[in-house]
Nucleic acid binder design. Structure first.
Lengths: 357, 357
DNA sequence: TTCTTTCATTGACAGTGGAAAATAAGGGCC
DNA sequence: GGCCCTTATTTTCCACTGTCAATGAAAGAA
């Protein structure tokens, strides 16, 4: 532990003791990892059950809530459909979700120490304000304040992809890395970036817009106004549209489109090939610019991952410059519960920071 | 000063006094900036003349050396043509350059406190080793050690674009910004990135490869093996090749190509328009991913900047997503002397760090 | 001259973290 | 079981950083 933190052993003792006394850390033994010689180390482990957290992720039609422990393990997950997208309705649904999860927490006899909320769009985490969410059609909603009043809990609010990235950084595939990217494939194509050990937020609230990198200036038009954005080729809507055009089958959604491709329909498979190519190029662009140690591909689109995996890999290998190709590109299934877990992770983060004072 | 550093006034006093006693800071007065009320502040200023530094930038055919003061102001600049590109020849030329500059420093009666060297390619700054420079055809050259033996000075070695970025961060248009990009246009298209206040180095030595972002998959082939990289459209070689093809005139270099365009030859102007478009898209990609506060466009290519300025601006405005377009894109002429100054900046940086111990 | 405002400095003090010594906990060897 | 040897952990100072509160200084205003 001292080696990892770059501190002396004495400093570790002094830092750890109060945490053990407060019950956040417990001593542990691992007979397996004992050295051949000398006194074995005293292992400590975070006692996850010492405090609970709630994370809420708001999508277009559902609010997803999870109850997690201090180690961000999901204990209970709940989904409630949204009746409307205005702040009042969303807040009411979220409060309902929190109430249910608080009852679960009561059953465990542990207090809930914080609530994290994740919303897509431009979110000012420090102020807890949703500056602009195109998806929910919100502008300057002081969500943290409103949610704190409604629930009585300390609230953190963050952009959903950033929250997911925080969860990966602290508890997922990004642990110990100083630079990595999380790429989410689904309705939109998003990206969370960690550089120098911190999540990139962008000067004006914009960062990680991998979905709007142009991969083909002659490609299909995107809702952002440009042509050939990654999202205009590989987003769910784009895939549905292209599969319809290529096969003539009026598929209703991405699941049906993937079904056609899985059935071996050539036109549909080609759409996924192009999509994989676009995503791979987008990832290569991130790798060429930032040199991350790892790229984690995730999102609902992962359900159809076998359809574009090879194309992502090929396009990445081709477009990555020099050693950037050595970046570890891997997938990780992260369903919506995991996004809510990301929200909880931001709450845990701010709980730890506040306690550290 | 206390407010800026987030420290108490008392801490500033204690930090500043030894620096004044050592002569690195001197008290100053600024009658202009006196407040209406109360005791005016004691201003301090870095005494640039207290220590000198040498920066050397190695290009394909020349070694450029500058002597700077502690404020990184260039006092003397010298150029020596390179006879060959192997480490021995380059080192000999660099040592010659350093000798000349040391004589100049002697004339000023101030000691030279460090030497910085900037080389293109994959450079391990911490170890002072040039891992791989395609341009010089070097592999694993321990340049810092060799140069230290040859000159007797403490040596820092860094990638040339990163060094230029450090100079901008400390002494140029990046002062006070936590995130910005330096884009260099010339023989190659390079990019130095600062995120969270630190220069991005990349996990495998690759970062900022804006030149190899694909802007047109159907575009001309690039030496990296792909098609339609920014560099394959807007690099000097690419421009010369395209101007020749478009006009039939066998221009010898980028200067002649720019001459044709300045004369109003349509084909040549169109080449610059396409180049500007490619650069603008590349910058937009950086802005979409990282949300920098500013982008500084520079490099030898700036000499022809009027030919693509509008196209860069237009392409950026179109391809930037949402508030990313609010990023401040500006130009700054940075001739090769400035790259050498960047090398000196890295030396100053490590001098300050070592002294702080 | 005296008051107000803003800076600068000082000295006491708390917190962090390091070095070195002391202590603890194994295993092997006699 | 005793006696090494090795590695971990803790304790006891001690240095350093930075804060707080008090004091002194410099300027303009009354």
């Amino acid at each position: 532990m001292a080696r990892r933190a770059g501190l002396s052993a004495a400093a570790v003792t002094k830092a750890v003791r109060p945490l053990i006394e407060a019950g956040y850390l417990v001593e542990d033994v691992d007979e397996g990892a004992r050295p051949a010689l000398g006194r074995p180390a005293n292992l400590v482990r975070v006692d996850g059950g010492r405090a609970l957290f709630i994370g809420v992720k708001v999508t277009g039609d559902t609010a997803i809530g999870v109850l997690t422990d201090l180690c961000c393990r999901i204990l209970v997950a709940r989904h409630i459909p949204l009746s409307a997208r205005d702040p009042k309705a969303v807040l009411g649904t979220a409060a309902e979700l929190v109430r249910e999860l608080l009852i679960e927490a009561d059953g465990l006899g542990v207090r809930v120490a914080g609530l994290g909320m994740a919303v897509s769009g431009d979110v000012d985490r420090a102020e807890g304000v949703v500056r602009y969410s195109p998806f929910l059609e919100w502008r300057d909603v002081p969500l943290a304040e409103l949610a704190a009043m409604a629930t009585g809990l300390p609230v953190t609010v963050d952009n959903d992809v950033r929250a997911l990235t925080v969860a990966e950084q602290w508890f997922g595939a990004g642990v110990g890395l100083s630079g990595f990217a999380v790429v989410t494939v689904g309705a939109g194509i998003g990206c969370g970036l960690v550089v120098h050990g911190k999540v990139v937020a962008g000067a004006h609230g914009v960062a990680g817009e991998i979905g709007h990198i142009t991969v083909d200036p002659a490609g299909p038009r995107c809702h952002c106004g440009n042509r050939g954005c990654v999202e205009a080729i590989a987003g769910d809507d784009a895939i549905v549209r292209q599969v319809r055009a290529a096969t003539g089958v009026q598929v209703a959604d991405a699941v049906e489109a993937a079904g056609l491709a899985h059935d071996g329909v050539t036109g549909a498979r080609e759409v996924y090939a192009r999509a994989g190519d676009a995503i791979g190029r987008g990832i290569a662009t991130v790798a060429n610019l930032l040199g991350p140690e790892r790229v984690i591909i995730s999102g609902e689109g992962l359900a159809a991952y076998d359809l574009f995996a090879d194309h992502i890999r090929d396009a990445f290998a081709t477009a990555a410059f020099g050693s950037a190709a050595r970046c570890d590109v891997r997938t990780r299934p992260l369903p919506f519960d995991e996004w809510a877990r990301g929200a909880a992770a931001t709450a845990i983060q701010s709980f730890i920071r506040s306690d550290a004072n």
